[in-house]
Write a protein that binds this DNA or RNA. Sequence first.
DNA 1: CGTATAAGCGCC
DNA 2: AAAGGGCGCTTATACG
Length: 533
Amino acid sequence: MRVAFDPGPRDGAPRIQRLHEDGSPAGAPEALPDLAAVAALEKAEAPRWVFARARTYRRLLAAGVGAPVGVGRAHDVELVEGLLVAADGRFGQPHGLAAAVARLHGRTPDPDPPAVEDGPPALFDTAAPGDELADVVAVHAAQQRVLAAAGPGMRLLAAAESAGMLVAEEMTAAGLPWRADVHDRLLVELLGPRPVLGGRPPKLAALAEAVDAAFGRPVNPDSPAEVLRAFARAGHELSSTRSWELKQVDHPAVAPLLAYKELARLHSAHGWAWLRSWVRDGRFRPEYVVGGVVSGRWASRGGGALQIPKAVRAAVRADPGWRLVVADAAQLEPRVLAALSGDHALAPGDEDLYTALAAREFGGDRAKAKLALLSAMYGQTSGGAAVLLATLRRRFPAAMAFVEDAARAGEEGRLVRSHLGRTCPPARPGHEQPAAARARGRFTRNFVVQATAAEWALVLLAELRGQLRAAGSPAELVFFQHDEVLLHAPAEVAEETVAAVHTAAATAGRRLFGDSPVRFPMQARVVEGYDER
DNA sequence: CGTATAAGCGCC
DNA sequence: AAAGGGCGCTTATACG
């Protein structure tokens, strides 16, 4: 059973409509007395809820519906529309509910409305006039027709993307445990006491002075142009101030400048201002954007959630009596390539893939093995990669042919798709130019692997969430970053949470690749702080 | 004054 | 030695 849901205007009654699996109505629209009625229906029937968009579920969670477990299954009409539009070779074209309705009626859709910010409910309400329930029902039915014809991969992808929406909203609601006091202590250790009136913290100021002294004149280390001029005067012509380039230079300003840049970045990106803006009540609450990256990876808004530097991870600490379960997929992308291409010798078991490959082909040099594989998946050709790639081509011809076919498709302006059917954006005008064609080839080469890895991770999240719900576990998913998951769990259920992670990983592999021998192991650890190994 | 872009670097 | 996929964010800088 599916149930389309419209939360209605702010003070109006929410409505539902029961649907058959193919999206056709199984009854007339029904008024619900309040949002809490959703929880009752979930408990009684556990339908797949058809929501217009993530914000619908966010409203339910904000209203405390079904807390702490929310709803079990969903179909996110706008996310699915995005997948279908892309599959049709029209990636990025409008895929909001209104656009989908327009398309149903043969009209050219208007651009999607900008994302509605959290604010007074009136803003939200005026943004969606008309009969949203009818629109959701109609578009969903059309989507089900397309999905039925598209095959099992796309159906799984639609379900996984929608499950991702549920996880993302719940994660935002839960927040990542964040100890502001620990974060502050780290900053003071690295930067010195927080300056009261703004300006540079003591250690940054000292490094800036050391740079001035080395150049014999004031140089703003935050200005790449000034730094370049200063080095030029000292006889060093640089093309940039990137750290790898600075490291080549023999000049007394280099060491303090590199130290300055590292600490300045910490100060500006994850310093006291960040802490003040993003951490409230012991939680860091970024907003996750499912499908926000072309490859299907999530993006985030606010606080740079997907770039938390290792230097501050000690601030992520479990509540008293609780633990963090930190789980990351081991060498996910090369394993995905092995499964995609059927070149199973590339990923023979659970052991570290790079170490195993190094032992067989690269004289035990793990770094070489890793560079070789990343080069194959990213399209790198220089920096000594060519000779490594020749080895891979000899030993793993199917895997290499797979990524090279994807690259050729891109160069020729064709579309490529992930394993389940996520489709890359079309080539842009000018892609025939050789440099642009090569760049697109690198993009499509990487897309097939990265997008498939992203959908493995989505299925993992969905499976893990499903297991926790089925077990009535109090563990919460609190962070997700491409191939890494953090859960926050009472200490006494930490180990069973680890077991759930391993089970979910194995299940995700089977759901994507059937009985492929390629394994997708996750390393999971129970810790109190995110910095602990 | 605010906005747009480039540089640079954090994460995967 | 030097460079290749995907992002978000901050600062400096140019521009209207």
